[in-house]
Design a protein around this nucleic acid. Structure first.
Lengths: 207, 181
DNA sequence: AAGTTACTTTAAAAAGC
DNA sequence: GCTTTAAAAAGTAACTT
C-alpha cells in the first residue's frame, strides 16, 4: 500500500511538473508573439483539457502547447500563422499543424478557417496605417469573400493585398515590399491578389 | 445521370513474388536502378514505358507506382519482373498483384465556395493557410477527396476505379443536397 | 515581370529504424 | 512517425532570365 501511495505521489508530482513546464513554455511563446494575457489564458484552457483527455500521449509538451496557442489565437480572432508559432516555439510547422488537427478533432473544437479580416488590425498597426484604411481594407475583404475570391487563397495574402489597395485609395500608400514583409508573403502574391481584387471587384485601376 | 467523367492519374499496386530476392543479384538486370539501402530498404527502378517506378524488396515484394491504368500497372510489373528473372530464374512466372490505391481527378463543372462547403459539409478540413484544397472524407466508398474552388476535384484512396467514380459522384450529389453547388 | 522548379495536401504498399 | 515512389489539384515561394 505504501508502494502504491508513493507511486501516486510520484505521478502527481510529475504531472504537476509537466504542467508547470507547459505553462512556462506557453508564457515564453506568448510573450515572444506579443499576445495578451487573455489569449494565453485561452491557450492554457485548451492545454489543460488536452491533458485531462489524455491527449498528450505520444506527443511532446512543446507541440501540444504550440498547437493550443495556435488554436487560442484563432479563437480569439488574433491569428498567428503556423510559421509564426513554429518560429517562437521549438516545434516544426508540420508538427504544430498536425497536433492542431488532432486537438481540434479530439476536443471537438470547431474553428472556421482564419478570416483575412482578423489579420488587418495587426498588419495595419505594424504599418502605421489609420483606422480608415483598416475599415476600407475590411470592406474590400468582405466583398471579396462574397464573390468567392478568397476560396483557397492564403488569408495573409488576401489581407495584405486589401491593405495595400486601401492604403493607396486613401492616400496613405505603402510599398508592396513593406506590406509583404509585415504580412509574411511575397510581393508576387500581393500583386496576384491585388490584380484579382481590383479586376473582379469594383475599383478602377489605381496603380 | 450525374455522369462526371474521372481521369485516372496514378495507380499504386503491390506484388508478391513468392520468393525472397537477393537485391544485389538482380540489380544489374535493371538499368539505372537506384539503391541506398541505408536510406531506403528497397531498389528503385524507373521504367520509361509504361512510365512507372517500382520499389523492389528483398522479401520478394514489389510496389509499382505511376501507371495511369491498371493494365499498364500490371504490364510494368511484368516487364520489371521479367528482367529480374534473367538473373534469378527462380522467380516464378505467376504471382499476385493487388491494386492498393487509385488517384483520379475530375471537374464538377461549377465553382465552389470552400468556406461555405467547410461550414455545411460533414467530415471536412479546410485550412487555406496550408493548402488551397478542402479535404473531404467519404465513408462509403472509403475515399478522400480534395475539393478546389475551381470545381476541380481529386479522389484518392480508392481500390477500384468504380469506387473512385462513385466517390466523385456521391460528393457532387451531397454538395447538391446542401445547395453548395 | 515572366518562367521554371519545387513544396504544401490526400492515399497506399513495401522493410526497418 | 520517418525513409521512397507517382500523380493531380491551386496557391505560394524561391530562383533565373
Amino acid at each position: 500500500r505504501l508502494r502504491k501511495w508513493q507511486r501516486k505521489i510520484r505521478i502527481s508530482g510529475a504531472t504537476e511538473r509537466n504542467l508547470a513546464f507547459a505553462l512556462s513554455e506557453l508564457d515564453r511563446d506568448s510573450s515572444r508573439l506579443g499576445l495578451p494575457r487573455s489569449v494565453r489564458e485561452a491557450a492554457s484552457v485548451v492545454y489543460r483539457s488536452a491533458v485531462e483527455n489524455k491527449l498528450i500521449r505520444g506527443r511532446s509538451i512543446e507541440g501540444v502547447v504550440a498547437a493550443s496557442l495556435y488554436a487560442a489565437c484563432r479563437r480569439c480572432n488574433v491569428p498567428r500563422t503556423l510559421d509564426e508559432i513554429a518560429e517562437v516555439s521549438r516545434v516544426s510547422k508540420k508538427e504544430v499543424g498536425r497536433t492542431y488537427r488532432f486537438l481540434t478533432r479530439e476536443l471537438n473544437i470547431k474553428l472556421p478557417p482564419t478570416s483575412p479580416v482578423d489579420y488587418v488590425p495587426r498588419f495595419a498597426s505594424e504599418l502605421s496605417l489609420s483606422g480608415e484604411v483598416q475599415s476600407k481594407a475590411i470592406e474590400i475583404i468582405e466583398k471579396a469573400m462574397e464573390k468567392g475570391l478568397t476560396s483557397g487563397r492564403g488569408p495573409t495574402g488576401v489581407a495584405a493585398a486589401a491593405l495595400y489597395i486601401a492604403s493607396v485609395l486613401l492616400g496613405e500608400r505603402k510599398t508592396q515590399r513593406d506590406v509583404a514583409d509585415i504580412a509574411g508573403v511575397t510581393e508576387v502574391t500581393i500583386r496576384n491578389r491585388y490584380k484579382e481584387l481590383t479586376e473582379q471587384l469594383d475599383m478602377g485601376v489605381t496603380l | 445521370m450525374t455522369d462526371v467523367p474521372i481521369k485516372v492519374e496514378n495507380i499504386v499496386a503491390s506484388a508478391t513474388l513468392g520468393k525472397s530476392i537477393e537485391l544485389p543479384k538482380v540489380a544489374p538486370a535493371l538499368e539505372g536502378v537506384e539503391y541506398n539501402l541505408e536510406q531506403f530498404p528497397g531498389l528503385v527502378y524507373k521504367l520509361k514505358e509504361p512510365k512507372t517506378a517500382a520499389l523492389i524488396f528483398g522479401s520478394g515484394k514489389l510496389v509499382c507506382t505511376g501507371a495511369k491504368s491498371i493494365d499498364n500497372s500490371v504490364k510494368a510489373i511484368h516487364i520489371t519482373v521479367d528482367k529480374m528473372r534473367k538473373l534469378d530464374s527462380e522467380i516464378p512466372e505467376e504471382f499476385n498483384i493487388k491494386v492498393q490505391n487509385i488517384v483520379a481527378s475530375a471537374n464538377l463543372g461549377k465553382t465552389l465556395n470552400l468556406e461555405a462547403v467547410a461550414l455545411d459539409l460533414e467530415n471536412t478540413e479546410y485550412e487555406p493557410e496550408q493548402f488551397p484544397g478542402l479535404v473531404y472524407r467519404l465513408e462509403d466508398p472509403k475515399v478522400v477527396l480534395l475539393l478546389f474552388g475551381s470545381g476541380k476535384v481529386v479522389c484518392t484512396g480508392a481500390k477500384t476505379i468504380d469506387d473512385a467514380q462513385l466517390g466523385v459522384e456521391k460528393t457532387k450529389e451531397r454538395l447538391g443536397e446542401l445547395d453548395l453547388i
